[in-house]
């Protein structure tokens, strides 16, 4: 995919910036978590753009955030399932 740069990002309006970041994040996350990628991308987009840009340059920080998001999502889904079961 086309690389995303900080200058490309900062020249776009704020809503467009999230869209650009999402388009960049989604295929990366899909490779690891195909079923959860849309949700995980949504969670990561709540992070500040400057931090997302850092993650763009540092895959290790991206994967650690993805791991955190997956854990949060699974805990959330387990809680929802437990609430439904009651």
């Amino acid at each position: 995919q086309e690389p995303l740069t900080a200058s490309m990002l900062t020249s776009a309006p704020p809503q467009e910036q999230k869209q650009m970041l999402g388009k960049w994040l989604l295929p990366l996350i899909q490779a690891m978590h195909p079923a959860l990628a849309g949700k995980i991308t949504g969670m990561l987009l709540e992070i500040d753009n400057s931090e997302l840009l850092h993650m763009l340059e540092c895959p290790q920080s991206l994967w650690s955030k993805v791991d955190e998001a997956v854990a949060m999502l699974q805990a959330h889904q387990a809680k929802e399932a437990a609430q439904k079961a009651v």
Partner: peptide, 26 residues
């Protein structure tokens, strides 16, 4: 608690403008 967070987190779709948490109905 009424468990209103059932739609969390918002899901990203490449063709849909991102609205973040605003797209979750309370």
């Amino acid at each position: 608690s009424n468990g209103s967070s059932i739609n969390w987190p918002p899901e990203f779709h490449p063709g849909v403008p991102w609205k973040g948490l605003q797209n979750i109905d309370p």
